[in-house]
Design a protein around this nucleic acid. Structure first.
Length: 380
RNA sequence: GCUGGAAUCGUCUAGUGGCAAUGACAAGAGACUGUAAAUCUCUCGGCUUCGGCCUUCGUAGGUUCGAGUCCUACUUCCAGCA
């Protein structure tokens, strides 16, 4: 079922939007954070656990599922939903990000036709084109597919970005022309680095191609400073239609969600809550350390020795399964022992943290007090 | 009791004349933004004005310009034989 978006209201003082997305009879509110499950699983979590975090849409990745197990296998299983037992909506990334992330060891070569990859699994030569990416996503049968774009590095200069945008536009058009899954939506992707004119140009040209929704890409890459990220969003959203979803790809950290929403973004995804979890980190609201410096933290590493005998929950006010049932000392112990359950508990907490943050932002927009909420958040 | 062998930084371990001394684990910390990431990086004897200085390889002596490395004795442990 194609996604339907309804803009409920826009915060009076900012561009923050409250919306509803519908997939058939399923309905969710935006702004929304979407957990990432690249290989058809949110790492260390069962679908039930993801659901208990009150996740709506989750992500999966074209590039990875293309290689393993192959989109034909997923199709044979009855599509991605049945294959991974996720009844909620699924958004598939196009593999465009891998053009960027696999580039570091010259494992790619970008041509007009498509991108040559060297498989990181077995060294095999792979060739991904816009048509191929869309065909794979059609076969995976996700609810939202992404156009195949080039996600340029933060170091890309103006000239490179300009050419890259043009190619991404041509790729978007090619992909759209072969898209043939009637109940799958297709999004276009805005690029342009931190440049106002490029973002505007990319946004307007992409919108002209008429997609079901629009993504803002290329903002969460290596070395990118937050200022550039926020600018990229600011320079893009004014040129996107109000009645379509806006998805800020790969973002992000709690503060980035707040800044993104303020600039009119509806959807976010990021690997950070689950990756940080596997590395022992828990997202937390600022905690005033009464002890020494009044230091405010946004993140704690449960592997640190100081949590060995800390028998309090990660966040007393958090309603997640981890905080309601387990202490920092226990999670510390699990992480020290490399027990998977530690990563599971922290993943639950971190995902729930970001989803709860979205809930709070929605409440703030409803009450027309988003700016105040942001102030409080930044101060906490 | 005799004959071999062995003792190294929390643990195991490399080292047979130039060594503050290998590697692993443990420990301490950091990074992570559309997942090549349950990964990676740094620290891990003490002091430092960052050039070094000091103290370290079971204990005590010795040989040597120089000893964790060679020699002697002792201590402890292991194996084999009684």
């Amino acid at each position: 079922m194609k996604v339907e978006f309804e803009l409920i209201k826009t915060d009076r003082a900012t561009g923050a939007r409250l919306g509803k997305v519908r997939f058939g009879d399923q309905e969710y509110e935006t702004p929304m954070f979407m957990p990432v499950g690249t290989q058809a699983t949110v790492k260390t979590l069962s679908p039930e656990q993801v659901k208990d975090c009150r996740a709506g849409i989750i992500l999966a990745n074209t590039y990875h599922l293309w290689q393993r197990p192959g989109e034909d296998v997923v199709a044979e299983a009855g599509g991605l939903h049945r294959f991974m037992n996720w009844p909620g909506p699924i958004l598939t990334d196009s593999g465009g990000y891998q053009v960027f992330s696999l580039a570091r060891n010259k494992r790619k070569d970008i041509t007009e036709e498509g991108v040559h990859f060297k498989s990181e699994l077995n060294g095999a030569s792979l060739f991904l084109t816009p048509e191929k990416s869309i065909a794979i996503q059609n076969a995976l049968d996700s609810d939202i597919a992404m156009s195949f774009d080039e996600c340029p590095p933060a170091t890309a200069d103006y000239h490179y970005l300009k050419n890259s945008i043009e190619r991404t536009l041509r790729w978007a058009e090619r992909g759209r022309s072969v898209h043939n899954n009637p109940h799958q939506s297709l999004f276009g992707i805005v690029q342009g680095g931190p440049y106002e004119d490029l973002r505007r140009w990319s946004a307007e040209r992409t919108v002209a191609l008429d997609f079901d929704g629009y993504s803002i890409g290329g903002v969460a890459n290596d070395d990118e400073c937050k200022d550039d990220m926020y600018k990229a969003v600011e320079y893009s959203t004014p040129y996107l239609p109000k009645d379509k979803l806006r998805y800020l790809m790969g973002v992000g950290e709690p503060v980035d969600l707040v800044e993104g929403v303020m600039r009119g973004v509806d959807l976010f995804d990021c690997v950070s809550p689950t990756r940080l979890a596997r590395h022992g980190n828990a997202l937390i609201y600022g905690v005033k350390d009464a002890g020494i410096s009044g230091y405010k933290e946004k993140r704690i590493n449960l592997k640190n020795a100081r949590f060995k005998r800390d028998f309090s929950p990660i966040e007393p006010d958090c309603d997640c399964y981890c905080c309601k049932n387990y202490t920092k000392a226990y999670v510390h112990h699990l992480m020290r022992c490399d027990e998977t359950f530690g990563a599971t508990l922290l993943s639950i907490h971190n995902i729930r943290f970001l989803i709860r943050l979205c809930e709070q932002m929605r409440e703030a927009i409803k009450a027309d007090r988003f700016l105040a909420f942001r102030e409080e958040f930044l101060k906490s």
